[in-house]
Design a protein around this nucleic acid. Structure first.
Lengths: 341, 341
DNA sequence: GTAAATAGCGAAAACGTTTTCAACGATAAA
DNA sequence: TTTATCGTTGAAAACGTTTTCGCTATTTAC
């Protein structure tokens, strides 16, 4: 491996000068700088990250916390996309990404980060209420969380209030007045969607029977199928169901088929996420697209900003817009409104 | 941050002794060792990875090469699972994972690995024919590839020959004699599946018209839909189609619906991969399950073995078994065999 | 002309480890 | 008693950087 010392010999200058030239200090002569840079290039010099880190205490390394146990992090397309996008973003800024986990040896997230001297940590798809995450949040590391907000820490979220809000509006425009909402577990994401849901319903004068709002589970087809069954067996079933995510819709769809309910003939539905799958199945799913790529970008950028300007960087909640993907799972029943069954 | 020096002061021994005690050299007295370990624990000592790496030239860090451009790596459930599983495996062995990419600055995979001083590299889901990958393979780094085999390098694959072979046999048992195969791009995986396909057909005396074997694209619903259309418009259409992967099946399924072809009533189909999705859609997909978790495990283990016993570790091709997941997309038409249409 | 500022460079310390080697005292062997 | 052996410890060098500070030579200001 060629080191700074090798270059210094080659160019007949001191190691100090080489280092400075390489790092663009104004401190060294123009001609010398050029000679050094050329030599470095020709000799295929690669800085030794460990040495640099040891000296500067900067690793140019960002930790990423993903859920371990259920594997639901990496396997979830939404989060995979966020991770991938964040990775590309921070890489362009000179940072690498290392997975952080609490290992068997009882090493916590925080300790793992300390061991690897992460410059900052991106936290996504994890149980945010766990003490391990709390410890990390309270630690010395700059953090950015995704889809969950801590006080005094930056956070990137897709605009869940607006997403649910707009879906309701869309359904309303299509003539729906009996709208059910199968939502995810009690998380802050769920709460925002609920608030968007109720806000829209309130504005539009839609009456929401208690039994129309049911708790499901993200990404769980069994639960969504069961919830769908219950809803459709009501004396007064809804004309539209909003699912917590695109994947859950699959369960609902299966259930409808079992019950002889046609989508969108008898029942209109919407998903959430806008993953690839939702756009290739038939009927194409009407859903709310969360801009995962953008979320990854924004969170990566924000984290790097926090790292490099720790002082001036303020904690903030960044909202990323989504958009409605109009598919074929919502029927326009506004004509029926005049003469209801 | 508490260092070895701090501990040495606390325990009234030299830093050298502390280091040795911590690393379990036999070299240091029993009582002293205990004192040191206790102090380390109490003071929350964390070794400085950079310093250690600088000295030992071992980073305990494994690079992972995933496709960048199309994002098809991380977003592909099969590969996500492999990655996740490999991650868990190597973490248990004391290694962390860092993503390796060729960055904008024109840094190649190999240079990136050198910069981070990766102890070894896992290569998956990438264009294996690219010069950048070739360079990495030829470099000083121990590598393990997934689903692609280089000479003199270890490689982990699911048993693609057997997978295709067994699918054909299964279809045959259900009475199918006209079996079409939409396969993926020309990769070594595809070639193995083709060879398994032809082997089974040969053994069973199944005649394979040339037009029954068509090149599609992995994970591409449009292409699979189009290929399905062509096949079903033949004068003599197949009674069964094998798709290159579960996702591609979605495209085929849509096409069949458009053409009024019922699955499995009029056409039997199989997928490949056995991702979550395939088991929750209706009809449930009959498919070949690739044990991604096992593949990740095996490749992680093998890589660490190569790293830690560079000398004695032989390059080998490791096959991981899969299994048939019987769904509802293959109809038993053996009764029809007696009196064909 | 002198004094002061500046540009360009190098010596050396430091970052936190690991590891070699020597030294020491104590014990075993001769 | 002397010598060899062993177990335990420490001094010090090394890994490849970065950065401070001081030095010289040159330029600028007066």
């Amino acid at each position: 491996m060629v080191t700074i010392k090798d270059i210094s010999k080659q160019c007949d200058v001191s190691p100090a000068t080489v280092s400075k030239a390489l790092n663009g200090y104004g401190d060294v002569g123009k001609e010398t700088t050029e000679r050094i840079l050329r030599a470095a290039r020709e000799m295929h010099y690669m800085p030794n990250a460990a040495a640099r880190q040891l000296k500067t205490n900067i690793s140019h390394n960002i930790g990423v916390v993903f859920e371990d146990e259920t594997m639901s992090g990496l396997t979830h397309e939404y989060f995979s996309q966020i991770l991938n996008s964040a990775k590309n973003t921070v890489e362009a800024l000179g940072y690498d990404i290392t997975f952080i986990s609490q290992s068997i040896g009882g090493r916590s997230f925080t300790e793992h980060c300390r061991y690897r001297k992460c410059d900052g940590v991106l936290i996504a798809s994890v149980d945010f209420t766990s003490p391990a995450v709390r410890e990390l949040i309270d630690s010395e590391f700059p953090t950015v969380t995704i889809d969950y907000s801590f006080n005094d820490h930056s956070c990137v979220m897709s605009d869940n209030v607006n997403g649910a809000y707009r879906l309701v509006h869309y359904l309303y425009d299509k003539g729906h007045r009996k709208i059910a909402f199968i939502h995810g577990e009690q998380t802050s994401v769920t709460q925002k969607r609920l608030s968007g849901f109720y806000k829209a319903c309130g504005e539009l004068g839609i009456d929401v029977p208690e039994e129309y709002v049911v708790e499901g589970r993200f990404h769980d087809t069994k639960v969504s199928a069961e919830a769908t069954r219950r809803l459709m067996e009501l004396k007064n079933p809804p004309t539209a169901i909003m699912y917590p995510d695109d994947f859950s819709y699959i369960g609902g769809s299966n259930q409808c088929e079992r019950m002889g309910i046609s989508i969108p003939g008898d029942l209109s539905v919407t998903g959430y996420d806008g993953i690839h799958l939702s756009q290739v199945i038939r009927p194409k799913l009407t859903t709310w697209y969360q801009d995962a790529v953008r979320i990854g970008e924004v969170s990566g950028r924000k984290l790097v900003e926090c790292i490099e300007h720790k002082k001036s960087c303020i904690a903030e909640e960044l909202l990323v817009d989504g958009k409605l993907l109009e598919g074929q799972t919502v029927r326009d029943i506004s004509a029926d409104l005049q003469n209801p069954v």
